[in-house]
Amino acid sequence: MSSAASAPSAAMLPGRGGLGGALSDAFWRNPKLLLFVMLTPPLLWLGIIYLGSLFALLIQSFFSIDEFSGLVVREFTLKTYGELLRPSNLDIIVRTVTMAGLVTIASAIIAFPIAYFAARYAKGRWKAVFYLGVMLPLWSSYLVKVYAWKLILAKEGILSWIFDKLHLTFLIEGWLALPVVGGNSLSVSLTGTFLVFVYVWLPFMILPVQAALERVPGNLLEASADLGASPRQTFVNVLLPLALPGIIAGSIFTFSLTLGDYIIPQIIGTSHRFIGMAVYAHQGTAGNIPLAAAFTVVPVVIMGIYLWLAKRAGAFNAL
């Protein structure tokens, strides 16, 4: 090696100097200062704007509304929570939670084969196709997806046309004649609401289930088969328990998203309300912010319990 002109000979070199050098030295001497500088902007934003708003909302749920003037009374009371227990409001809560549960179960059933195929059998190019095949619907416009189903479920839409061509229209009519799930057409029935919910949240179930299944070593399944288990026994005793954390992780999304949604049941559904619609109506036209706030606490509490149970089941490792 030739001797470079810039090679220093002292054991300690001078700093770079300037503001950058001084700041850099200060951060090196005091790493906590750097941490403080890095964390302050996001914490100010999320901690003050976001958490502050959430707490403000929570506090308002303990206020009440004066029935004559329609003004918010800023005094602590549990009266508003009492109103949640009215039969009409309880109805809304039960309906929403039931819907969220059914949507979650249906999503898990449809998601499993896709996730299993993508995790175990898709290789190379097909793996990418499957990944994008799930990511694109996940990220594509929520409203467009809802709109697409409005087209599909409309009386004059494609679904009726297909059933008509197959001479199966009586199936749809018979189903729509049923109480609760039926209605004038699929686009104004709870069945329609359910279908759209499942469609829109399905990708949120596929991804965590796939992640969980990818961690199952292939030889585990071979070992099970080797020990004489039928494919069905392998599925029930080996695959399902190992996929369960993924399913629970996915259900956090499907459950939470269904609990809070107010647009899908408004566009494709009946006049029966869901929690999200009730919140929207109470804060909007009715101006009853306390009741709206109390309603939002319901999904938060339900999700809190759900997350706690999920954490105990070890679902967070699959996220």
């Binding site: 002292a10 054991a11 300690m12 070199l13 001078p14 700093g15 850099s24 001497r29």
Partner: peptide
């Protein structure tokens, strides 16, 4: 007290 980048 001397950071690594100033040590030769």
């Amino acid at each position: 007290g001397v950071p690594p980048y100033r040590r030769n």
